[in-house]
Design a protein around this nucleic acid. Structure first.
Length: 428
RNA sequence: GGAGAGGUGGCUGAGUGGUCGAAAGCGGCGGUCUUGAAAACCGUUGAGGGUUUAUCCCCUCCCAGGGUUCGAAUCCCUGCCUCUCCGCCA
């Protein structure tokens, strides 16, 4: 959520900033609601004040044993009037709030102009895509040959966009998670957390998935309004919801491994083959709470933390600075990391690292006590995948494949794999 | 799932329907004292919002949402959560 003061005092400027990402701010409506709010709030508070002073007077008169009948008569129909004002004010504030919740974050100056992903700016590349002397298979064919990846059974169990992995491939998938968590906790200073995979709607509002993106979420039936998490960002960032963090505890850095559930509504027909776009996938997520002054430094660090995983796995990638039209709703700036997939002959997203500035913090009331002002002030929040485990597995399979359909295990994972160096079809 | 108890400021904890945003203690901050520190003593110490250049002033908030009342932390209803006991269970 943007600072309501921006809407009040710098509406034109804010509208101009939002236009960069193609968002049209309805200034007329906002101005009208805002002036309504102002006059209603002033009169309501005046009435409340009147009620309070009269009630106190009645109390004092009663204590002295005086006759309170005239005072009571004076406020006879006062309640109805006040109630009416309060109701109208609440309605206007609700409208204003609904509008505010649907406004995306403003963008950082370093975000390049552009409309869609074709305008994203490549920041750097690492590694060289391998030159194959045979036609590389994609991960679906490789998994099939290994008899370790089974989409049909998953469809029987649930439906489309799910997978069953087995044997050494399932183990490799698990080893990847372990590896990522170990690197981030041991080398990058993140504290590991285990969190619920089901959250309430407050949490989804806090990070910005609700109210605008309800159709992307899996709501679970039952008496409670609960949802499966679309990313660990939701529970981990909301851990601090409503908190005032000590200045010494900033930055606070968490890493969590969770499954992620996405309905992928609106992406029918997109990436229908294989593990690229599933309803359920594993992800290791980094989350940071930082002082506002250092959030852009933190974004660089967070992005490098994610890149480290790919470097250790020796997977070629590139980093993109997302353009104005492609940055997500809540973010002020986002770097996407894309890994090389030989079978698709292109780079595909494997991590997304964003600085939300105070946009999420305002929704969640996450603050820190600034020793200079001595006041609670909003923190900045960031998060990034480190990495999407399923897609990393895909990248390993495709980049490390041999002509006979076997797959080498990256050096960094061989230890966790119990010394296994190659996945082959005849393995258990 | 059954029975009971309870949710109050950073924490512990009091609160009769009427100057209660809330006693007291702890903690925090400032000061006195001290070479320094501790102790002791004194003072101070919640958040959000409106109006304002600023101060002042005003409003809201005692788990959440409703209700009763001129007036609710206090009474009533609903929900959520916590604790104790019993049952069930990985």
């Amino acid at each position: 959520m943007l600072d309501p003061r921006l809407i009040r005092n710098e509406l034109a400027q804010t509208a101009r900033l939002l236009k960069r990402r193609g968002f049209e701010l309805d200034c007329k409506q906002l101005e009208q609601l805002e002036s309504e709010r102002k006059s209603l709030q002033v009169t309501t508070e005046q009435l409340q004040n009147e009620r309070n002073t009269t009630s106190k007077a009645i109390g004092q008169a009663k204590a002295k044993g005086e006759d309170v009948a005239p005072l009571l008569a004076a406020v006879a129909d006062f309640g109805a009037q006040l109630k009416q004002n309060e109701t109208r004010l609440a309605a206007v504030q609700q409208q204003l709030n609904d509008l505010l919740m649907a406004i995306p974050n403003t963008l950082h100056d370093s975000v390049p102009d552009g409309r869609d992903e074709s305008d994203n700016e490549e920041v750097r590349r690492w590694g060289t895509p391998r030159a194959f002397d045979f036609e590389p298979l994609d991960h679906v064919d490789l998994g099939d040959r290994l008899s370790m990846m089974d989409f049909e059974t998953a469809t029987k169990l649930t439906g489309s966009r799910f997978v069953v992995m087995s044997g050494a491939l399932a183990k490799l998938h698990r080893a990847l998670t372990q590896f990522m968590l170990n690197v981030h906790t041991k080398e990058h200073g993140y504290r590991e957390v285990y969190v619920p995979y089901i959250v309430n709607s407050e949490s989804l509002k806090g990070t910005g998935q609700l109210p605008k993106f309800a159709e992307d979420q899996f709501a679970i039936g039952g008496e409670q309004e609960y949802y499966l998490i679309p990313t660990a960002e939701v529970p981990v960032t909301n851990m601090m919801r409503g908190n005032i963090i000590d200045a010494q505890r900033l930055p606070t850095k968490f890493v969590a491994h969770t499954p992620c559930f996405r309905s992928e509504a609106g992406s029918y027909g997109k990436d229908t083959r294989g593990m690229i776009r599933q309803h359920q996938f594993e992800k290791v997520e980094m989350v940071q709470f930082v002082k506002p002054e250092s959030s852009y430094e933190a974004l660089e660090q967070l992005t490098r933390n994610a890149e480290t995983i790919l470097q250790k796995l020796e997977l070629p990638y590139r980093v993109l600075n997302l353009c104005a039209g492609d940055v997500g709703f809540s973010a002020a700036k986002t770097y996407d990391i894309e890994v090389w997939l030989p079978a698709q002959n292109c780079y595909r997203e494997i991590s997304s690292c964003s600085n939300y500035e105070d946009f999420q913090a305002r929704r969640m009331k996450i603050r820190w006590r600034n020793p200079d002002s001595k006041k609670p002030e909003l923190v900045h929040t960031l998060n990034g995948s480190g990495l999407a485990v399923g897609r990393t597995l895909v990248a390993i399979m495709e980049n490390y494949q041999n002509e006979d359909g076997s797959v080498r295990v990256p050096k960094a994972l061989q230890h966790t794999m119990g010394g296994v160096k190659v996945l082959a079809a005849d393995m258990p």
